[in-house]
Design a protein around this nucleic acid. Structure first.
Lengths: 236, 236
DNA sequence: GACGAAATGTGACCGTCGTCACCGAGTCGT
DNA sequence: ACGACTCGGTGACGACGGTCACATTTCGTC
């Protein structure tokens, strides 16, 4: 079994299905999708597509997480977002016919449904339900992009940006009596690439937060002790 | 005649029509659109919708230009983009059901077709052609947003960002023997808000470019003399 | 458990650009 | 023509954070 997981062949009988996008399609629509998709498994660290490549098709992420990033000619990198299972990758490029804007790289073993561009466009044209789902996905991506523009463009200090990032991450955490527990699987380097700061600044600012008793850390676990204080750091 | 222009009542017979989005729909589709839209004229400086407001509906821009911006609680502003005739505003909010992400403000007298959210969603569901157009518009918006993220996140120097901005603007200009002539209708303040720099920095950097004979200016006209040098400023 | 690689922590330095302060030029309205 | 605006231009200053350099810890692999 490659990459330690079994591939699910048909979307109709798939147990991975979650809401939020193509998985939620009706039977007939799902059947049509089943007919044009190619299911594949990838190891962690694999590149699904690279920035600037011509749009081959869309990648529907069934399982795993994928990093979407852009790189400058000098080697600097911005992480657009971490894509979770249930989302579609490469939709913009396929719809607009332009090259992929970003590079997609798996963070862990992933199951992916690939659909070729022509097949996908035909599918959209024939299934208005799918078109709406596509629009919804695009809309969500745009919202995320806007949030990032806001973060990059409207903040002065690195602490502000980091506080924002932590608060957003905390949505995935769980409440405990000490505070909100979240597992942060990203390195300081990667966090820096998300918020537009250097690795050292992330390290320093995190230490500062720890010293002020805003959070606790051991390993990749983080406990947000004082959410209110963090929010005031994030800007009124 | 309000705001010095005559409103065009029907999309079917509209002479403003240009390609790139809803205008390019087929007759039947266009007719359906005609049935649910409300045409209105706005003066310059009018606010179509504000950041954070619940999504009432979409605004199709027939004529004129609109500024899309986001503002922080401290009063700092980022301009997302300048929207030209033929594009749709508020699509993301309507599709996703979330509040408007940005504020839309007319820069000059505009003609706008408004469609209420429920009507528009029904229209999309019943016209797969329209859904595709919507997806295309969303896709374009996303691309623009990504470009801005790249500009804000991957550049160190203000000159780099400004050079990028000028090169993009030059696409709208015309070739002359002295160079590329473009009319820049934005103030330095606004340019700063687009590229993430202060007004003073924009002024200073423009002067620097002028001193280095990269460009000439008188009033709002700008002549890019040395495109190659500007490109090297914009990063390899 | 041992080793190398990657990730983290921390100090010092210094450039860029934001901020403040002010002035001149152009524009608008009455 | 006059004041009141906005816009543009310029100097001085200082903070923030990027960069370099190195120590230390953690992690994965053999």
């Amino acid at each position: 079994m490659p990459y330690g997981m079994e591939l699910t062949g048909s979307c109709e009988t798939c147990t991975l299905r979650n809401e939020g996008f193509f998985c939620g399609l009706q039977q007939t629509c799902l059947k049509a999708f089943d007919g044009i998709k190619f299911t594949a498994g990838y190891p962690g660290g694999a590149m699904l597509f690279g920035e600037g490549e011509g749009a081959r098709g869309v990648y529907v992420l069934c399982k795993g997480r994928v990093k979407l990033s852009m790189t400058s000619s000098e080697g600097k990198t911005v992480i657009l977002r971490i894509v979770n299972a249930g989302e579609v990758l490469g939709l913009h490029a396929v719809v607009s016919g332009k090259p992929y804007q970003a590079t997609a790289e798996t963070l862990e073993p992933c199951q992916v449904n690939f659909v070729r561009r022509e097949d996908f466009l035909r599918f959209l044209a024939q299934n208005s339900e799918a078109s709406i789902h596509a629009a919804r996905q695009l809309s969500g991506d745009y919202q995320t992009a806007c949030d990032q523009i806001r973060s990059l463009g409207l903040t002065h200090s690195a602490s502000e940006k980091l506080a924002r990032f932590l608060l957003e991450s905390s949505a995935r955490g769980q409440e405990t009596k000490q505070g909100i527990r979240v597992r942060i699987t990203m390195t300081h380097e990667e966090i820096g690439q998300m918020i537009g700061a250097s690795r050292e600044t992330v390290t320093r600012t995190l230490s500062e937060f720890k010293n002020r008793h805003l959070l606790l850390r051991n390993g990749s676990m983080m406990v947000i002790q004082d959410r209110a204080a963090l929010e005031s750091f994030a800007g009124a």
